[in-house]
């Protein structure tokens, strides 16, 4: 349904651009949650903003394409997508505290999206219905609330309601639960899972939290330094990661049984855009790296089951990096 091919996002001068997203290909189907995982600064958010046509000034899509139901929407801003009848992507942002307009009522903010995407609906009725869909109690009265009168979890639900008002085929959620308490996090994850199934929409869920991935994902794409280093269905990927980075990332999950061993970490830090080494970007931090990893193209490994990894020395099942 949503198909991204070789997407490249660059910043800086056109003569010497800096690659932020470097050839990302992914697809999402109806009723499927794809989790995009990676450390801060790996290009997850830039990928999602590029999909939405909302890149900040200075960043641009310099290659590749984004197609929704066969229509190319790569270089269309959201309002142009609406005009072309292709406004079927919606997004929920990370910060519920700052992502709503502070001086207008939430009903107004939802109705604004309804009027654009559902011109025949009664905006107020539809807004109330959307608040009920994200399980906000007393929806009819909450329409007249201002954002500052709501808690973080409630605001994030309002954000989801606004996104749903766009009647999306694919919902992009950029770390929607990172700023929330764990219990609220659970509720919001539950709502997203349920809406994905009920409305049969695709979801791209961006997170750095593998615990969240385990709870919600159907498929996972692991991102490192602007590239997808590994993709696959959630269960096999968790059971037997192919890429050393994926394995190391999972080793960092706290394991109550192994508390005495202390916290696992990945030594070093992810390279910043513009400082990404040739060859495999993870090589400087990778315990398995050989000379061949430090230059040239990295081969794609494709074992059975739709899995894919970018690595010279992928891990066998049960092996650690």
């Amino acid at each position: 349904m949503l198909s991204v091919t070789d997407l490249t996002v660059s910043a800086g001068p056109r003569t010497s651009p800096i690659g932020i997203v470097r050839g990302v290909s992914l697809g999402v189907d109806q009723g499927e949650i794809l989790c995009l995982v990676g450390e801060s600064g790996c290009g997850k958010s830039m990928t999602s903003l590029a999909l939405m046509g909302l890149l900040p000034p200075g960043a641009r899509v310099s290659g590749g394409s984004v197609e929704l139901d066969g229509h190319d929407i790569t270089h269309l801003a959201p309002h142009r997508r609406v005009r072309a009848g292709r406004g079927k992507l919606a997004m929920v942002f990370q910060e519920p505290m700052t992502s709503l307009n502070p001086v207008t009522r939430i009903g107004w903010q939802i109705e604004e999206a309804v009027r654009v995407h559902d011109p025949d609906a009664n905006p107020t009725d539809r807004a109330r219905e959307l608040l009920e869909m994200v399980r906000i109690p007393d929806a009819a009265n909450q329409l007249s609330a201002y954002p500052h009168e709501l808690s973080g979890g409630m605001r994030q639900r309002v954000m989801i309601a606004i996104a749903l008002a766009c009647r999306p085929r694919v919902l992009i959620a950029d770390e929607p639960t990172t700023a929330l308490d764990v219990t609220i996090q659970r509720q919001v994850l539950g709502i997203i899972r349920e809406l994905c199934d009920d409305l049969d929409m695709g979801v791209i869920f961006i997170t750095h939290d593998l615990g969240v991935v385990a709870q919600i994902a159907d498929r996972v794409a692991v991102m490192y330094a602007g590239r997808l280093v590994e993709t696959g269905a959630v269960a096999p990927l968790f059971r037997a990661p192919l890429h050393p980075y994926t394995e190391r990332l999972m080793a960092c999950l706290p394991d109550p049984a192994a508390r005495s061993k202390g916290f696992a970490t990945i030594p070093g830090s992810a390279p910043r855009p513009g400082e990404i080494p040739d060859g495999c970007a993870f090589a400087p931090r990778c315990p398995r790296a050989q000379d061949v990893c430090r230059g040239g193209e990295v081969p794609v490994v494709r074992p059975e089951g739709g899995r894919r990894a970018l690595c010279h020395f992928p891990l066998a099942e049960g092996e650690t990096a």
Binding site: P78, T98, N101, P102, E112, V116, H117, C166
Partner: peptide, 15 residues
């Protein structure tokens, strides 16, 4: 530069 402006743009309303 505020986040809510990006939210508004994402809705697809006119600039």
């Amino acid at each position: 530069r505020e986040d809510f402006v990006r939210t508004a743009r994402a809705k697809g309303i006119r600039p």
